[in-house]
Design a protein around this nucleic acid. Structure first.
Length: 474
RNA sequence: GUCCCCAUCGACUAGCGGCCUAGGUCAUGGCCCUUUCAAGGCCAAAACGGGGGUUCGAAUCCCCCUGGGGACGCCA
């Protein structure tokens, strides 16, 4: 049988890293099993839906490379289907009409909570007489549909990650499957969809484990076998609380915009709560090959940005410079280094060279773009403390001499420049160490950077010589 | 309050009764390399939440406690 899984976000927020990991696990499982990965939007809550969030969620998945094979489906376009299935349950006596108003129910719920009791529907409408129904109707009440839930017994969830989890039926009440306005509730829509879409494995966030017995009851009422469930642990923030905006970046697109590579995020997310021996670095192909639900660690995991950055640098260092260079290009504009037109005009070879020279010093694409400010433009800021410390009259004089020698070096390449510089310095009774820092400050405005001669080669003859000669004016 | 889940270094994790004086990775500290900063190499520090069992033997199995998280909606 073909494996069919789904990722089912609701468009009430951006796709955050926790959701992305759930999507990733689904996707990996589907690819590994040669199954089908389905995307479905759970948008039955008309008030809280934000349609403008759908495209960013799609974009997040595309960026991560988690392409879906089917969908996206929208629950909001399937209300008729849910109503049909609900009415079947009603006619079979497995569901019944409830005339209680939301206000009445809310009141009871509050009272139960205040009395430190478990809020449960009291079953008031479970067996209404025709006369009572008539009265409610005449009061203008619109009924909701509730599932008739057995009062005793246990419901067992067989979870691929957690094992067998049992719930006592007495914990459950007759919950609503269809609202009074005819829209389905979450639990009902999910099961109808999972049944009609032929879902074989439900891989979803931990928080739904408590919903699972309710959903199993719906499968049973509908007369369909339950799929395999796998509840993946939550992703927490550094302070062990639920990840939220105040913890900094949490949305997938924020990481993209900060210069994180998709393969780094994928690798990081995959290793968060899942492992394969001592291996840390996984290509997507390896993940597909090695992923298994059984190896997913059952406890919640804390999102550690440091490790993500380490992985990001790893992929920056090992990726194709041409490709990384193109990814750097938009950051030239974003960081106000170049105008859009100027950024477009930079040869991709130049960007690739910058990548090769600077990638061991950058953890993000943004950091990788930063040196372009002094390589590609003259709009650089000099660190005044550094200038004061290193650009003494004596050093400035040396740099002047150096400029004279380097000016005619042909070709203007790192190796030739270094040879020329070293021999000139030797003739002056100096070493490279004597001018390295003054030279770096004169060229880049700062004390930390890549190799001097690689930097010169990238800046080009004109800029290099001009800056060396101008050192005294700083 | 009730129910459910979880529990190894600061973090991610290996471990599925003896291979554990508990391994790897990130972060941290030190040393080396070095024109700076990185990167890299080497080294160090760092954990089985507590208490009971079971067993010849427990990080591994069971129970209790504690701690953390989640759920209890005509939200998803």
């Amino acid at each position: 049988m073909t494996v069919r899984v789904r990722f089912a976000p609701s468009p009430t927020g951006e796709l955050h890293v926790g959701g992305a990991r759930t999507a990733l696990f689904n996707w990996l499982f589907a690819r590994k099993q040669r199954g089908v990965f389905i995307l479905r939007f759970e948008d039955t809550d008309i008030e809280r839906n934000r349609p403008e969030l759908i495209e960013p969620i799609l974009e997040s998945l595309r960026w991560l490379g988690l392409l879906w094979d089917e969908g996206p489906y929208f629950q909001s376009q399937r209300f008729g289907v849910y109503r049909e299935w609900a009415e079947r349950l009603l006619s079979e006596g497995k569901a019944y009409k409830c005339y209680c108003t939301p206000e009445e129910l809310e009141e009871k719920r509050k009272r139960a909570l205040a009395a430190q009791q478990k809020p449960k529907y009291d079953g008031r409408c479970r067996s209404l007489t025709a006369h009572e129904e008539q009265r409610f109707l005449s009061e203008g009440r619109q009924p909701a549909l509730r599932l008739r839930v057995p009062q005793s017994g246990t419901i067992a969830v067989e979870d691929a990650i957690r094992g067998r989890v049992e719930f006592d039926s007495s914990e459950l009440d007759d919950f609503i499957i269809l609202r009074s306005d005819g829209r389905p509730t979450y639990n009902f829509a999910v099961v109808v969809d999972d049944v009609t879409m032929g879902i074989t494995h439900v891989i979803r966030a931990d928080e739904h484990l408590n919903n699972t017995p309710k959903q199993i009851l719906i499968y049973q009422a509908l007369g369909y076998p339950v799929p395999v469930f796998a509840h993946v642990p939550m992703v927490l923030a550094k302070d062990r609380s639920k990840l939220s905006k105040r913890h900094g970046a949490t949305a997938v697109l924020e990481f993209r915009d900060r210069g994180i590579l998709p393969e780094a995020l994928v690798n990081y997310l995959a290793r968060l709560g899942w492992s394969h021996g001592d291996q840390e670095i996984f290509s997507t192909e390896e993940l597909i090959e090695k992923f298994s639900l059984e190896a997913v660690h059952p406890s919640a995991a804390i999102f550690d940005e440091e490790k993500l950055l380490w992985l990001n640098q790893h992929y920056l260092k090992t990726g194709d410079p041409k490709r990384i260079g193109e990814l750097v290009r938009p950051f030239l504009v974003k960081l106000n280094i170049l105008s859009e037109a100027e950024a477009d005009a930079v040869p991709s070879d130049t960007l690739a060279q910058i990548v090769v020279v600077f990638r061991e010093r950058a953890k993000t694409l943004a950091e990788l773009a930063e040196p372009a400010r002094y390589i590609l433009t003259d709009n650089l800021v000099y660190d005044s403390d550094a200038a004061q410390k290193f650009l003494t009259p004596e050093k400035v004089e040396l740099l002047r001499g150096l400029a004279g020698v380097l000016e005619s070096v042909e070709p203007f390449r790192a190796s030739a420049l270094e040879a020329a510089a070293r021999s000139y310095l030797e003739s002056q009774g100096k070493t490279l160490k004597d001018v390295a820092q003054p030279c770096r400050v004169a060229l880049t405005g700062r004390t930390a950077g890549a190799g001097l001669f690689e930097t010169m080669e990238l800046m080009g003859r004109e800029r290099t010589i001009a800056r060396l000669r101008r050192a005294g004016a700083l």
